[in-house]
């Protein structure tokens, strides 16, 4: 059951580019990445696409399909009508390298800025005891495949390039939550989450949660609990009154 699908694929690089139209065969059960591979093999051999596992496990093939951030390998063609034009562009929050490939180094930079796991001193390997209940929350966050779709969709950086400096993005704010809830971690990142990694910039509008291909409840389970922890530490009402007044002054 094949048909000829209509595709518009963004082609270009940092200097400019445009959507190119293609007509290409689509077969039953295929995903968008299959069709792009067919384009490579038949019409556009140098079409740049980043991918790896083609099974939704590695988070390499992130792009935007009909304007929505998605994994190319997990978007089935069956969700589109046969006569629907499928538009594929690179992620629009990161600098483009070529065609559908973007420079995601922002994410690796942010990853490096989060203080790493810090085990208690003097605990020997194998002595660790922690219950399933203790690890459950952090395990949810560790399902992350680092596709960076949440980072791509988050309006804090998508719509405001200047915020990239001060905002780690949902993926890495979630990494902070993961470590803060880690039963063996002894470091403290609560104040830093707010001051250095920009937790306060998140306005909990949940686009990150909406696009996460792993179905991680980023906002409800990581960001909001972190905001509550920050409130514990920082926003005792009297303390904040004093702080807000002094901040408004300078």
């Amino acid at each position: 059951m094949s048909y000829t699908g209509q595709f518009r694929v963004w082609r270009g690089d940092a200097d400019g580019g445009a959507l190119a139209d293609f007509r290409v065969e689509v077969n039953e059960g295929e995903v968008v990445l299959d069709v792009l591979h067919r384009l490579q093999a038949t019409q556009a051999p140098d079409l740049a696409v980043r991918w790896n596992c083609k099974a939704g496990k590695c988070g390499s093939c992130s792009a935007e399909i009909n304007g929505k951030p998605r994994l190319l390998c997990m978007t089935r063609m069956s969700v589109f009508e046969h006569d629907e034009v499928v538009t594929v562009t690179p992620m629009r929050t990161f600098p483009v390298i070529r065609d559908l490939v973007t420079d995601v180094s922002y994410n690796y930079t942010k990853a490096r800025e989060i203080p790493s796991f810090t085990p208690p001193a003097g605990l020997a390997p194998g002595e660790y005891r922690m219950g399933q209940a203790d690890v459950g929350r952090s395990q949810e966050f560790r399902k992350c495949i680092e596709c960076f779709l949440c980072q791509d969709t988050c309006h804090v950086v998508r719509d405001h390039e200047e915020n990239k400096e001060s905002f780690a993005g949902p993926r890495f704010l979630m990494r902070i939550a993961e470590l803060e809830m880690h039963p063996l971690d002894v470091a403290d990142r609560v104040s830093a989450a707010q001051d250095e990694h920009g937790l306060g910039r998140c306005n909990i509008t949940k686009c990150c949660t909406d696009v996460c291909p792993e179905g991680i409840k980023i906002t409800d389970n990581a960001l909001i609990p972190m905001k509550e922890r920050v409130a514990d530490r920082r926003y005792d009402p009297l303390v904040w009154l004093g702080r807000t007044i002094s901040r408004r002054r300078d």
């Binding site: 796991f117 085990p119 399933q132 395990q139 880690h182």
Partner: peptide, 8 residues
Amino acid sequence: TYGALFDR
């Protein structure tokens, strides 16, 4: 010791 969280 590097931070992995296996099932328990």
